[in-house]
Design a binder for these strands. Structure first.
Lengths: 337, 337
DNA sequence: GTGAAAGCGCTAACAG
DNA sequence: CTGTTAGCGCTTTCAC
């Protein structure tokens, strides 16, 4: 592997000139630049990023930490982040925290050790100690999906409260009054917001929410299946259910199918977030979707701007909140007597 | 950030002793080891991987390159690879080649520059020049899914020919004779094998394959949709279709739905690979599935073994071929007159 | 068993 | 505009 020294020797300049020629072509005379480039090409020189990283304290690596890589929502986002990063000459280290703050911490430490230039994170923790643990991170941080109170960082996500509200409003207009809600992991930002959007909208319509109809699905397929089962087998079964994530919606749909409850005739279902194969799922889900690709694009460009210094490093974190889109399917129908 | 020097000073030893204490605890006296560890804890020392990497020429990073991260098949595999890697103290850099050899090359160069310890790759190229381009990679390489002729490296994948054969046999037994086949990207290993499994099985039953029934879906949803449409709207429409990937199967199912052809009554469909939530898709697909998690586990452990030296570095590449599993759904039914 | 010394390949003042 | 000089933090012989 050719080093900067080989190039310097070949071009009859010092190694610092070679370094400059690559990092700031403008600060080198045209002729020298030419010679250096020719020499570099001749010996097949490519800078060693590891050495650059050690000397400069910066790397061209960014970290992406999500709670579940195999969820297609994250998959789409990841793909876009990776695309943006690569375009800017960055590589992406991706990790799965499994929704466990301890695991997340371990990953963050690793990333920190690698001196990544920045991190995009879907945080899975909460509380004061959690927030404080971010103090030692010196690189730019962009949170997405989940927002952590008290943590000063950019946030990219969707209007979760609105998402729930749209679905609730839709079901109310269809005449439903007893609406079940399958909620995500307790204490998570998106969970709180989505539940809130639901209860607020109900309250605004003067309907008192039966708290026992808010079930705990923990953003997990199996849990959600159980929760849906319990909801569906109650004597006072709700006439409609809102599942507050794609995975939980599919689990609910499966429970509905397993019980043989006709949907939408006997039970209406509405979902937050979609899945790629929504078109071949029957009934077609009524849902509110986030644009995962766009979220990825915004997260990546924001982080890259922070890294590149386009944004003053100490600029306070900003929120980028996208409006989700309502899509009418045929899993929801007017309430029948 | 505490450095090795701080620890050395605090423990009253030289930095090389500190280095040794961590990399080869056995070569340091018990008492010294104790002191070093205590000092390290006191100053909060954590080795700088970048510096280690520069000095040793090795890193604790591995690369994973796939053709489409957002495909759930890769998602599951990725998740498992990441899990295995993290357990072994490695971080994984993941990239999406988009199935483009040029893009793949660029990524590989980047990875090479980062001195990753090893690479897991789903190769998307072919031919002599392609094979030669791997000569400059000095780190261990494990290929998965796609196999490249002439490239000496470990290979992890499924028996693709068998997968097709099982599906074909199944349809033949149901009485189907005119079977359409939606193939993947031309020249790819999996494509050739899957087509071959189909044609061989047909031939073995003495049925001549109508080559025009083998459509080109390029492992892509839109292409496959078009291909399926053409197949389905022919006057001499096949009575069954094998879609040779999950994405293409769903596209085909959608085409079937859009045309209103009753499945499985008028058209049988069988698929290679599954998708998550297959349970809520109707009709439930008859398919042959690969165990993506297991493929991930094997790929990761094999690579890690190569990196760790458990396997002689120059050991010739081995093949790890898993037998796929047949799952009967209700998208396939006996041929009707 | 432990330490001194020479790098790994590059960046970044600072002179000239 | 270009070269000199220090490192960045660690690994790795090679003596002692």
């Amino acid at each position: 592997m050719a080093t900067i020294r080989d190039v310097a020797r070949m071009a009859n300049v010092s190694i610092s000139t070679v370094s400059l020629a690559f990092s700031a072509p403008g600060r080198v005379s045209a002729e020298t630049l030419e010679r250096v480039q020719r020499a570099a090409a001749a010996v097949g020189y490519a800078a060693n990023p590891v050495a650059q990283s050690l000397a400069s304290g910066k790397s061209r690596l960014i970290g992406l930490v999500v709670a579940d890589i195999s969820n297609p929502f994250f998959g789409k986002l990841l793909k876009e982040v990776e695309r943006c990063a690569l375009t800017a000459g960055f590589l992406v280290i991706i990790s799965d925290s499994g929704g466990d703050p301890a695991q997340e911490r371990a990953i963050l430490d690793h990333l920190n050790g690698q001196r990544v230039a920045g991190i995009i994170l879907s945080p899975c923790g909460n509380g004061e100690a959690y927030v404080r643990s971010f103090d030692e991170l010196k690189m730019p941080l962009v949170m997405f999906d989940q927002k952590v109170a008290g943590l000063d960082a950019d946030f990219v996500g969707s209007d979760n409260r609105l998402a729930s509200a749209m679905l609730t409003e839709h079901l109310l207009q269809l005449g439903h009054r007893r609406i079940g809600f399958i909620a995500g992991t307790r204490d998570l930002f998106t969970t709180r917001e989505r539940v809130r959007g639901f209860t607020d909208t109900m309250a605004a319509s003067g309907i008192e929410v039966d708290r026992s109809l808010i079930a705990d699905g923990q953003y997990d397929g199996e849990r959600a299946y159980g929760a849906a089962m319990r909801l569906l087998t109650r004597p006072d079964r709700p006439s409609a259910i809102i599942a507050s994530s794609n995975v939980m919606a599919l689990a609910t749909l499966q429970a509905i199918g397993d019980l043989g409850v006709p949907c939408p005739e006997r039970i209406s279902l509405a979902s937050i977030d979609d899945v790629p194969w929504i078109n071949v799922i029957s009934p077609r889900l009524t849902m509110v979707v986030q644009d995962a690709t766009e979220l990825g694009r915004i997260s990546a460009t924001r982080l890259l701007d922070r890294i590149g210094g386009t944004i003053p490093p100490k600029a306070i974190g900003e929120d980028f909140v996208l409006t989700p889109r309502f899509i009418l399917g045929n899993s929801s129908a007017p309430l029948r007597a």
